[in-house]
Computed example of a mutant assay.
Amino acid sequence: MLQSGDLAPAFSLPDADMESFDLLSTRGRQRVVLYFYPRDNTPGCTLQAADFSDHEDDFTRCDCIIVGVSPDDCLTHAEFRDQHGLSIRLLADTETEVARLYDVWQEKEVDGVKKMGVARTTFIIDKQGVIRHVLRDVTPRGHAAAVFKLVKELDT
């Protein structure tokens, strides 16, 4: 399981506009808030994405980009983004390869039924590509503010 101090595994995924995002391209240039969420258009996922979008300028001032990843496809991401006025980049991990790479594809129990799904998890990655914080079992409300506080502390 990935933890603070580990090098963030490299990956490349398409975003809502079908443009490729490569994590390695951020090395030496930007910090990354990489958050995994279960599905577009669910209440918690919408709240989380909207909250990050609302505070994106604050993160940008700290040389930090926000990237959300779920198993939804590019078209679903585009509709989700447009419907809710989201500005953050949403990546399509339709084969759950990156979710598995980051150990967030896990068995969950919902209404007594066990199935595989994305565990809501956020990784804060520094400019050298090192994971500085891992936040597991995230509660969407207030999460963006808590993450921003941790990003700001990277400067101290």
Rank of each mutant, 00 (worst) to 15 (best):
L7E: 11
S12Y: 11
A16L: 06
A16R: 13
M18F: 13
M18L: 12
S20P: 02
F21W: 04
D22T: 12
D22G: 01
L23E: 10
L24C: 06
T26L: 09
T26F: 00
T26I: 00
G28H: 03
G28E: 05
R29C: 02
Q30I: 00
Q30P: 01
R31Y: 01
V32C: 02
V33F: 09
L34F: 13
L34W: 10
F36H: 01
P38Q: 06
D40V: 07
T42M: 09
P43F: 04
T46A: 03
T46W: 02
L47S: 07
Q48A: 14
Q48F: 01
Q48T: 07
A50I: 03
A50L: 00
D51G: 04
S53M: 07
D54P: 00
H55G: 01
H55D: 06
E56G: 00
E56H: 02
D57Y: 08
D58S: 05
D63A: 03
C64Y: 10
V67F: 04
D73K: 10
L75T: 04
L75P: 00
L75G: 01
T76H: 05
H77A: 02
H77G: 02
A78F: 15
A78K: 15
E79R: 15
D82G: 04
H84F: 04
I88A: 04
I88M: 13
R89N: 11
A92G: 07
D93R: 14
T94Q: 06
T96C: 13
T96D: 02
V98M: 10
R100G: 08
Y102V: 08
D103A: 13
W105R: 11
W105Y: 13
E107T: 15
E107W: 09
K108I: 03
V110Q: 14
D111N: 15
K114T: 11
M116Q: 15
G117M: 10
T121K: 10
T122E: 06
F123M: 08
I124M: 11
I125Y: 09
K127P: 06
Q128R: 05
G129A: 08
V130A: 06
I131Y: 10
H133T: 01
V134Q: 10
V134W: 12
L135N: 10
L135A: 05
D137I: 00
V138A: 10
G142A: 09
A146T: 04
V147L: 07
F148K: 10
K149N: 14
L150W: 14
V151N: 14
K152R: 12
E153K: 07
D155K: 09
D155V: 00
T156I: 02
